[in-house]
């Protein structure tokens, strides 16, 4: 067993975990943050994407122990109470989600990108940046609409 101390969505958490426990299982099973979804457990689908120290990471490809000393942000940490973040709002405005299973991973990846963008990327660039988040429902078109809207705001300082 390994002692870990992690900040999750701004809250300090300490736990004793099995060395092999995946970060995804720690978030979901130990902390009850079931908004992070597990779609493949081999790093391909992107549903489990979270931010670790601000950088997107597959929580299925990290041991919980590796997050020791880090700050983790999950989908539960995006909205301000009832108020959706501008990225979440853009997904709602543009119908950028259907079943909602891949959505948390997409939102986290877009949150990372939004923190970096200086200008609104092209639709092609958006697609390149998000190629690691699979969605089986939307055909992606309306996701790209949503991300375009969100990043446009982010680039304009409206975030």
């Amino acid at each position: 067993m390994v002692e870990i101390a992690v900040e999750v969505n701004g809250r300090a958490e300490t736990a004793e975990v099995d060395g092999r426990m995946l970060l995804s299982d720690f978030l979901r099973g130990v902390l009850g943050l079931t908004g992070t979804h597990v779609g493949c457990e081999h790093g391909y689908c992107g549903s489990c994407t979270v931010l670790v120290d601000g950088a997107s990471a597959r929580s299925c490809l990290m041991l919980a122990a590796q997050a020791n000393g880090s700050s983790v942000r999950t989908v539960e940490g995006l909205a301000d109470g009832e108020e959706l973040s501008s990225i979440q709002q853009a997904f709602k405005d543009c119908h950028g989600l259907q079943c909602g299973f891949c959505t948390p991973g997409l939102l986290m990846t877009v949150t990372e990108i939004a923190a970096e963008v200086a200008s609104t990327p092209s639709r092609h660039q958006i697609r390149e940046q998000l190629a690691g988040n699979l969605c089986r429902c939307t055909g992606y078109h309306q996701i790209v609409d949503a991300v375009e809207q969100a990043l446009d705001q982010a680039a304009g300082g409206g975030r």
């Binding site: 060395g19 092999r20 995946l22 457990e41 081999h42 790093g43 597959r58 299925c60 490809l61 990290m62 041991l63 122990a65 590796q66 020791n68 000393g69």
Partner: peptide, 23 residues
């Protein structure tokens, strides 16, 4: 871990000890 952990998850790798260089 981006190659090792998928192999662990698929149980294609079965090490007795894992040495994490993270620290």
């Amino acid at each position: 871990g981006q190659s090792l952990i998928p192999m662990l998850n698929l149980r294609l790798a079965r090490p007795a000890e894992v040495i994490d260089l993270g620290s």
